[in-house]
C-alpha cells in the first residue's frame, strides 16, 4: 500500500499523452505569393538593421559630445542608442519572423538527456581516480598528502592579513573608527564655508550643518568629515530631557548630534522643528531630539551620539570633548574596548 495522500490512478484510467495537435498549414505554406512577401519583409528588416548600424556611426560623428554642453550628451546618447537599437532589433525581429513564417513549421519534441551517465562511463571515471591514486600514492604516502592539505589551508592567510590592514597606514583601524576630529575646544563651524558659529547665531528652531574647525586644512578632509559631521539645533531648554551626566552637554537648549546614522551611516538631517524628530532618508529611522536622539522608529538600533558643547571666551560654540562613543554604524570590535 502506498503511504500518503496522493491519488494514484490505475494504468487503465491514467490520462494518455494526447500528442501534438494536427498541423495547421500557414498562409505562407499554401500561397507562394504570401511566402514571397514574407521573404521580402524579412529582407527589409535585415536591411533596416544595416541602416541602423550605419546611422549609429553617422550619429556618433554628427552629434559629438561637447565639453560644457550637457545637452550634447543627450543628443549623442539618444541617436547613438536609436541606431544601435534599430540595428539589433532589426536582426532579432527578422530572425524570429523568418522562423515563424518561413522555416519548417511542424511541432517536434526532443527527449531530455539522462542526467546519470551510463554504467560504462561511471566505471571508467572511477577507474581514472583509482589509477590516479595508485600512480601518485595519494592515500599511501600520508605525509605528502597531509602536508599538501595543510599548505592549501594556509595559503589564503596572507591575503586575509593584508585585508585586515587595508585601513589607514600606521593607524589602528579600530582606533580610527572610535575617534573623530573633535576634541576639547574645537570650534563648531558652518558647512561648507568653515565660519565659526556663535551661540547667539543659533536662534530657536534653527538648524546648522556643522563641521569641525580646520577640517578643510586636513589632507583627509572627506574621511574626517564622514565621521565628524554634526547637526546643531536649538530647542527650548524645557523641551530637552537631559539624562544624568549630560547636564552640561547642551548650551541653553543648543544641542549637537552626530549626523551619521547608527544604522548604516547615511547623513541624518531631515529635522522637523515642531516635532523635534530627525528622520534618516535612507531607511526611515527616526530619532527624537528631545529625548537625546533616542530611536522612535526604523531599523537604527542606537541613538545618535551627542557631541558635548559649550562656548569659549569669545562666545563661539566649541566642543567639550570628542564623542563619548563611536559614531555611525556598528563594527566588530565596537563594544570591546
Amino acid at each position: 500500500m502506498p503511504v500518503g495522500t496522493a491519488v494514484v490512478l490505475p494504468d487503465s484510467e491514467q490520462i494518455q499523452n494526447p500528442g501534438f495537435p494536427p498541423y495547421r498549414p500557414r498562409v505562407s505554406d499554401l500561397d507562394p505569393k504570401k511566402a514571397r512577401s514574407n521573404e521580402r519583409r524579412i529582407a527589409l528588416l535585415f536591411a533596416a538593421s544595416m541602416v541602423g548600424s550605419v546611422f549609429a556611426i553617422v550619429a556618433y560623428i554628427v552629434f559629438p559630445i561637447n565639453a560644457n554642453d550637457p545637452g550634447s550628451i543627450r543628443l549623442n546618447n539618444l541617436f547613438l542608442g536609436l541606431g544601435i537599437a534599430l540595428s539589433l532589433l532589426g536582426i532579432g525581429i527578422a530572425a524570429v519572423h523568418w522562423s515563424k513564417a518561413l522555416m519548417e513549421g511542424h511541432d517536434l519534441s526532443e527527449e531530455r538527456h539522462m542526467t546519470r551517465g551510463s554504467e560504462a562511463t561511471r566505471a571508467s571515471a572511477a577507474e581514472v581516480f583509482h589509477l590516479g591514486n595508485k600512480e601518485s600514492g595519494f592515500t599511501r604516502r600520508k605525509l605528502v598528502r597531509n602536508t599538501l592539505i595543510a599548505s592549501l589551508a594556509l595559503w589564503p592567510l596572507p591575503g586575509i592579513i593584508i585585508f585586515r590592514d587595508l585601513g589607514p597606514a600606521d593607524q589602528d583601524a579600530n582606533d580610527v573608527l572610535r575617534h573623530t576630529m573633535w576634541k576639547a575646544g574645537t570650534r563648531l563651524t558652518k558647512d561648507p564655508n568653515g565660519v565659526p558659529i556663535k551661540a547667539s547665531d543659533v536662534t530657536l528652531g534653527s538648524v546648522f550643518h556643522v563641521i569641525p574647525e580646520g577640517l578643510d586644512d586636513r589632507e583627509d578632509a572627506l574621511e574626517q568629515k564622514a565621521k565628524a559631521a554634526v547637526l546643531l539645533m536649538r530647542l527650548k531648554p524645557e523641551d530637552l530631557h537631559v539624562s544624568k551626566g549630560r547636564e552640561n552637554w547642551n548650551y541653553h537648549g543648543i544641542v549637537a548630534y552626530s549626523k551619521i546614522c547608527t544604522h548604516v551611516g547615511c547623513p541624518v538631517a531631515l529635522y522637523e522643528q515642531q516635532t523635534h524628530h530627525l528622520l534618516c532618508p535612507c531607511h526611515q529611522s527616526q530619532f527624537d531630539i528631545t529625548h537625546e536622539a533616542e530611536v522612535i522608529f526604523g531599523p537604527a538600533k542606537r541613538p545618535l551620539p551627542q557631541l558635548p558643547i559649550t562656548v569659549d571666551s569669545e562666545g563661539y560654540l566649541v566642543a567639550r570633548s570628542d564623542f563619548h562613543e563611536p559614531v555611525g554604524p556598528s563594527f566588530w570590535e565596537r563594544d570591546h574596548t
Binding site: 556663535k198 536662534t203 534653527s206 538648524v207 539645533m233 522643528q273 516635532t275
Partner: peptide, 13 residues
Amino acid sequence: TGPQNMPVFNNLN
C-alpha cells in the same frame, strides 16, 4: 521664518 516643520535658516546661518 521656517514655516511649519521647516527649520529656521536665519541671516547668521
